[in-house]
């Protein structure tokens, strides 16, 4: 019998909360590959990220510095962890941390840690701030938007777009504003949390569809699975979703990948209008929190990403199961104060 390949993989995004990070779903996908004997290292920012305490999912967790500490601090911490754990692959799962991880990816490669990430230029091009011009350049439907730095600019934008408008934070969160007062409130809330600029986007009504996809960095689509949200939380997150059969959505993902030569996982947030036009609302440069649905539907995107990060050739997936549903659930995990204390005091558990 062939021995299982031992791998040590570090993953961020362990915040399996009401607006969850993708880490736990990514790990579940990785663990589905029974050819691999995997040790999962969780990388956390805060002491109460649930994944830290989920020992059947995450073997060991280390805290890492916040993105604002810069790429050098991150590299130093990862090298410390590597000394102990001998990491094979690192998979970052937060938008805000990606820039630092991309910057240090060559240094990580130098010590034998694989990543599979887009370039800084790719990351920048699909940023919310540049999305409209990105869409124009690549012939993709994107709602009109305005990038603003002052609350006073809201009025002219709303005069231009009409109401409602979508007021979006630089990294996360969005509010639909029907009045100037609502838009101002959203502006201040997002500014306090994520900083400037604020993006004000034309409101498009329709059906929310997301596509989780994986590009090989050479223009090929390794996987693309579209999902319609069936149940949406007050934060706009999918609490349940179903895989769809729609060639036009797969073609859209393929078009994005071939146009950008995207390397790594990403998510297209689509609003399909009543006349069947797929507007791209956002492009998230990492796997979504619902990525385990792709595994359930027959396309294990996290596993394929690990293989490519290890330098293996991966053949594109061609089929997936349509009508596969995910339903998210919350669960109270019980732990002891000692565990919390260890994470808080020593930065590891």
């Amino acid at each position: 019998m062939k021995a299982k390949k031992k791998l040590c993989i570090a993953v961020t995004g362990l915040n399996a909360i009401d607006s969850p990070g993708p880490g736990i779903a990514v790990i579940r996908g990785i663990r589905e590959n029974k050819q691999h004997d995997v040790r999962i290292i969780g990388l956390s920012y805060e002491s109460l990220e649930p994944g830290i305490y989920m020992h059947d999912v995450v073997d060991k967790t280390y805290q890492i510095p916040y993105p604002s500490a810069g790429s050098e601090a991150l590299l130093n911490r990862l090298l410390q962890i590597h000394e102990i754990e001998k990491l094979d692959v690192v998979i970052p799962n937060f938008d805000a941390e990606l820039q630092n991880f991309i910057k240090i990816s060559e240094s990580l490669k130098g010590v034998g840690i694989g990543t599979f990430l887009p370039s800084l230029a790719q990351l920048e091009a699909r940023d919310k701030v540049n999305l409209y011009s990105f869409g124009k350049k690549h012939n993709l439907l994107v709602p009109a938007d305005r990038i603003i730095y002052k609350v006073d600019d809201l009025k002219s934008v709303m005069d231009q777009f009409g109401v409602p408008v979508v007021v979006k934070g630089k990294y996360y969160e969005a509010f639909v504003a029907h009045t100037l007062e609502q838009a101002q409130k959203a502006f201040y809330k997002l500014q306090a949390k994520w900083g400037l600029p604020i993006i004000v986007q034309q409101f498009i009504s329709g059906t929310e569809i997301n596509i989780a996809a994986l590009g090989d960095g050479k223009g090929n689509t390794i996987s693309a699975v579209p999902m319609r949200k069936l149940y949406i939380t007050d934060k706009g997150k999918a609490w349940a979703g179903i895989t769809l059969e729609d060639k036009s959505l797969i073609d859209l993902a393929k078009h994005f990948i071939s146009a950008t030569k995207w390397k790594g996982g990403f998510e297209l947030e689509i609003m399909r209008t009543a006349d069947n036009k797929p507007y791209i609302m956002e492009i998230n440069p990492r796997f979504p929190a619902w990525i385990f649905l792709t595994v359930g539907a027959g396309q294990n995107q996290p596993d394929a990403l690990v293989k490519m990060a290890l330098g293996e050739d991966v053949k594109p997936y061609t089929d997936y199961e349509v009508g596969k549903i995910f339903i998210r659930y919350s669960w109270d995990l019980i732990t002891d104060i000692e565990a919390f204390q260890k994470v808080s005091a020593f930065g590891e558990l």
Binding site: T207, L244, E245, D246, V322, G323
Partner: peptide, 17 residues
């Protein structure tokens, strides 16, 4: 063509969900 139906009356449109 792709509409799924069952004898129990459940209908699923895989294009729209």
């Amino acid at each position: 063509k792709n509409i799924a139906t069952s004898e129990s009356g459940f209908v699923f449109n895989p294009t729209t969900g």
